[in-house]
Amino acid sequence: MPTITLSGEPFEVDEDGFIQDPARWNESVAKGLASEEGITELTEDHWKVIRFLHNYYAQFGSAPMVRKLSKETGFDLKTIYKLFPTGPAKGACKLAGLPKPTGCV
């Protein structure tokens, strides 16, 4: 399995760069992954999305519905795509340390 180095620490990632152990996530991981997703700087708006996703995953064990993400953060889908060019399921979930969603979605 491929490994990447974030803040000097090695992390196992899948083929698309999602970290494999969500428990090892921290804010410097998000910062380290941002550039890969075409994000130059993580603003407070980015953090709002990342924190919601991370906390939801910690509580429920899976990703939330995009509608729920929009409702809770107040950002519509267009805004989320502006913040995370590869979208909520890929870019935002990756930075928040969630696994890649797999199944009929």
Binding site: Q59, F60, G61, S62, M65, P101, T102, G103, C104, V105
Partner: peptide, 15 residues
């Protein structure tokens, strides 16, 4: 967890 997406019982309820 019960389904393809790993939605937990409390996640199902929340959804």
């Amino acid at each position: 967890t019960g389904n393809h997406l790993g939605i937990t019982p409390h996640g199902l309820k929340d959804n």
